[in-house]
Design a protein around this nucleic acid. Sequence first.
DNA 1: GAATGATGGTCATTAACTGACCGATGGTCA
DNA 2: TGACCATCGGTCAGTTAATGACCATCATTC
Lengths: 226, 226
Amino acid sequence: MCVPGDRPGRTTGGEALGSERRREREKEQRRSAILRAARKEFFEKGFRSVTVDTIARRAELSKGAIYLYFKSKEEIYAQILLRDIDKFHDRVETLLDTSKSASDNLRQYADVYAAFFLSDRELFRIFMNFMLQHNPVNFTPNINDHIVKSTNQTVIIIEQILQMGVNRGEFPPDLNIRVCRNALWGLLNGIIALHIFSGREETREERVRTQLREGLEVFIKGLRAV
Amino acid sequence: MCVPGDRPGRTTGGEALGSERRREREKEQRRSAILRAARKEFFEKGFRSVTVDTIARRAELSKGAIYLYFKSKEEIYAQILLRDIDKFHDRVETLLDTSKSASDNLRQYADVYAAFFLSDRELFRIFMNFMLQHNPVNFTPNINDHIVKSTNQTVIIIEQILQMGVNRGEFPPDLNIRVCRNALWGLLNGIIALHIFSGREETREERVRTQLREGLEVFIKGLRAV
DNA sequence: GAATGATGGTCATTAACTGACCGATGGTCA
DNA sequence: TGACCATCGGTCAGTTAATGACCATCATTC
């Protein structure tokens, strides 16, 4: 990296000392600090009403510095979502337990699903938006695909559980899995959405869980009786 | 801080955002990191054979950066010494326990003294050099004074203990405190020095302590019999 | 529909850091 | 003894990271 007017023999070569590792590390830490700060902001106020300035202030940086690490406000948001979605994906992926009944698996699924979204309401909004095919933030195609794929995966798990129930004779053999899957998924999201979008902020988790369980039991009973 | 050729209205004013606090904090951390690295180096190899480059490498910085925080190798050394000496000073200052006998106080003193220097041999070298009035490193007068004052303080504590013993009749009333103080101080340092300067690096603390205790008992017996 | 205010993004300027270089010093060998 | 060499404290031209005043844009108000 030399400028034309350099004095000869005074160029800055590639770093030989151990400081490059340190700088790499510190850069990564700054990046994380921004994401941490932004996450808090986004999940407190939602995408629109958060300003880059407040993120910067929370991360104890200037606005300009934010743009050294991310190329837009959208990108920050996307990065946070990707991280959270992957976390959720991991949780859900290891959920299927073949040693238990299909019904118990459905109950377990509902628990994990509710716990995750009740701890991150904003994340639930985004998921909903993606599922319903109208996203408010314009992500790059790559990111879009990733989110869509991950969200779809959660639905597929329900399908797998239902299939397991059919194979074992727990549910009737002529069960329309596709329809039931959508119905159950709608049930879960409906109850959660009801509370999250109700306007009142102080939704108690326990109450949502109880409702979910009750709804689920009705659903399972229905499944068996088809 | 404007340069003559500035575009008007594009000056950088005083910082209003919260990043100044962060920068202050990080600067302090860098400083500490350098001191930590330097301390390890100095106390492994001694002042002379440590290079500024190795300190820099250990602190994961460049040599130039070191000189942004300290103006010379000597200053780094002095800062470390001041910190350690103050620590020692604090330890010794709260040592005097008037509820115990003077003899026990002397034993306690010897223990603390030995523990401190056996954990930092290089520090002991420096103390010795100051006590014997020939210091190998040229500190600024301020630092010199501070070190001399602190080192003297440790000797005065011995004097106070002896005085306490005389007042209580534990030691003879005609005891020459100045002479005894120097003798005891010499005894302590002699035994420690013997081990630290012996060449063999693996001096075991326990052995030094035992010798110190034995020497001290002989000395105390002598004091009483004067 | 002009004025206003808020906000995402830019860029001239500054601060932090880097490492090749310099001069002094001490050791070595002809 | 003096030319040579290696080492090391300290310097500084150059690079990278960070700052915040500014700009363009868009929604809102009057």
